[in-house]
């Protein structure tokens, strides 16, 4: 994929991410998050990780953002105040700007990783078989732990959202 599409998706995802941070309305923020995720999925496609792009859209954009929208609708909160940065003391602001400047400066000056020629590096993320092979051999134990984690999360959510009337209810 050419540089044009990379730039397009990069600018799109960053602009939408800024929309998440700056939007006063929670629904608009959730929709900006959705668009930003679409941009990141496009970048995954440009990195030839097609399965991950699809999963990102399916899990994040499909399930998680929909869940966020449900909760926003359920709680029905009023619009947020415009986010401000004015409450910081002057010293903290100066230090923060200095740290950010040092970080960006060191990234530009020293942090240049050489990037290998992509046509000679194999795109392993494009093949579905390799994912299956890795997940069921090298990463078998983490996969099982993740399954258990999902079970625990599901039980936790059920317990959290149930209304208890007292100690007798738990027994």
């Amino acid at each position: 994929m050419g540089p044009f599409l990379f730039n397009l998706f990069a600018v799109f995802s960053v602009v939408c991410a800024a929309g998440v941070v700056l939007n006063k309305n929670a629904v608009n923020a959730a929709l900006c998050l959705l668009l930003s995720l679409v941009g990141v999925a496009g970048l995954f496609v440009s990195l030839e990780a097609y399965l991950l792009a699809f999963l990102l859209l399916l899990v994040y954009a499909g399930a998680i953002v929909a869940l966020f929208l449900f909760i926003v609708m359920l709680l029905d909160t009023k619009g947020d105040a415009r986010p401000t940065l004015h409450k910081l003391p002057l010293l903290a602001r100066v230090m923060a700007f200095a740290l950010v400047g040092a970080g960006v400066g060191s990234f530009v000056v020293r942090g240049q990783l050489e990037s290998p020629d992509l046509s000679r590096t194999p795109a392993l993320g494009a093949s579905l078989k390799l994912y299956a092979y890795q997940l069921f051999t090298t990463y078998l134990l983490p996969v099982q732990i993740l399954g258990f984690l999902l079970l625990v999360a599901m039980l936790g959510v059920i317990v959290l959202s149930k209304k208890f009337d007292g100690l007798d209810d738990i027994k």
Partner: peptide, 10 residues
């Protein structure tokens, strides 16, 4: 992608 490995993807 740039290192030609699979671990990051997993």
């Amino acid at each position: 992608r740039f290192n030609g490995t699979m671990d990051g993807n997993v």
